[in-house]
Computed example of a mutant assay.
Amino acid sequence: MTTPSLTGKKIAIITENGFEEIELTSPKKALEEAGATVHIISTHQTVKAWDADHWSIELPVDADITQVSSDDYDALLIPGGVINPDKMRMQKPFISFTQEFLEAGKPVAAICHGPQLLIETGLIKGKEMTSYPSLKTDITNAGAYWLDKEVVTDNGLITSRSPEDLPAFNKKIIEEFAEGIHLTRNSLAPSDVN
């Protein structure tokens, strides 16, 4: 089976300082190899990565999050790391930007601790998701169904647990981003149906 083409697609990666290096660089490379234009978006001009137990590379930022809209992009990627999502979920521009994608039914992918930002949107109730295991209770309390799988997809929402899941995560985000808008994103959860 051939890899779907993302030629003509623009993908947003939102991040703060402290993203887990491989959780940004690996998906970014996979998306670009599939033909996508990928922009790193933040409140800074450069962002610094964390690599396992130390600070590592610094990457240039393509756009300020306060200067862009979800209308400018076809899909959203949220890398993890312990520091990065915790910083983003406390800043309204990151929350609002993510909400716009979810409300529009555009594909959204998050790995490891990245789903912390998804929780803040208030839009994951009834969704099947995964994450780093320490977020299981938080995700469940937000009304989502937490599954212990390498990649979980629910109507264009793609989540994975950790860097070990990157091969499956990268493959799935390319498939889902190629599909585009998922119009039934805000449909009722199974428990809401009589």
Rank of each mutant, 00 (worst) to 15 (best):
V68P: 09
K172G: 12
D86G: 01
G122A: 11
L166N: 12
E179D: 13
D53A: 15
S69A: 05
N170L: 10
T137S: 13
I139K: 01
K136A: 02
I173M: 09
M90A: 13
Y73S: 05
H54C: 02
G81D: 12
I78C: 00
N170Y: 07
A63P: 04
T159H: 00
I57H: 09
D62M: 02
D86Q: 04
M129Y: 12
P133F: 07
L102V: 06
I119R: 03
K149P: 11
I124K: 07
N84R: 04
P190K: 11
I174G: 11
L166S: 07
A75Q: 10
F101I: 05
T153Q: 06
P79T: 10
F177Q: 12
H182L: 03
I174R: 08
W146S: 00
A144G: 07
P93N: 05
V61I: 08
D71I: 13
F97K: 06
S160T: 02
K92T: 10
K87M: 10
P163R: 12
G122H: 09
M88G: 01
D72E: 08
L157M: 10
G122L: 09
H54V: 00
L188M: 15
E175K: 11
P115S: 01
F101S: 06
K171M: 01
L188Y: 15
A144I: 01
N170S: 15
T153P: 01
H54Q: 08
S187Y: 10
R161M: 05
L117N: 05
K92Q: 13
A109N: 05
D165M: 01
P115E: 00
A178D: 15
P115Q: 00
G126S: 07
I158W: 09
W55M: 10
I95Q: 02
S70C: 07
V82I: 08
K106N: 10
V82N: 06
E58H: 03
F169R: 13
I111L: 07
K125M: 03
E176R: 00
E179R: 05
A168F: 14
A63D: 14
E175W: 14
I174N: 14
M88E: 07
L102S: 06
G122R: 11
P60Y: 03
G80D: 14
D154P: 03
S131E: 04
R161H: 06
K149D: 13
G105A: 04
P163G: 09
L102F: 08
H113R: 03
G105M: 03
S69T: 12
H113D: 03
Q91N: 12
T140E: 03
S160N: 07
P190C: 02
L135Y: 00
I181H: 12
P163W: 08
L183G: 15
M129G: 14
S70G: 13
E128I: 14
T184W: 13
D148T: 11
E58R: 00
I173K: 06
L102Q: 03
L123T: 06
E150T: 07
K171Y: 05
Q99D: 10
K136Q: 12
A168E: 15
T137F: 12
E179S: 08
P163C: 14
E103I: 15
F169N: 13
A75N: 12
F177H: 14
Q116I: 04
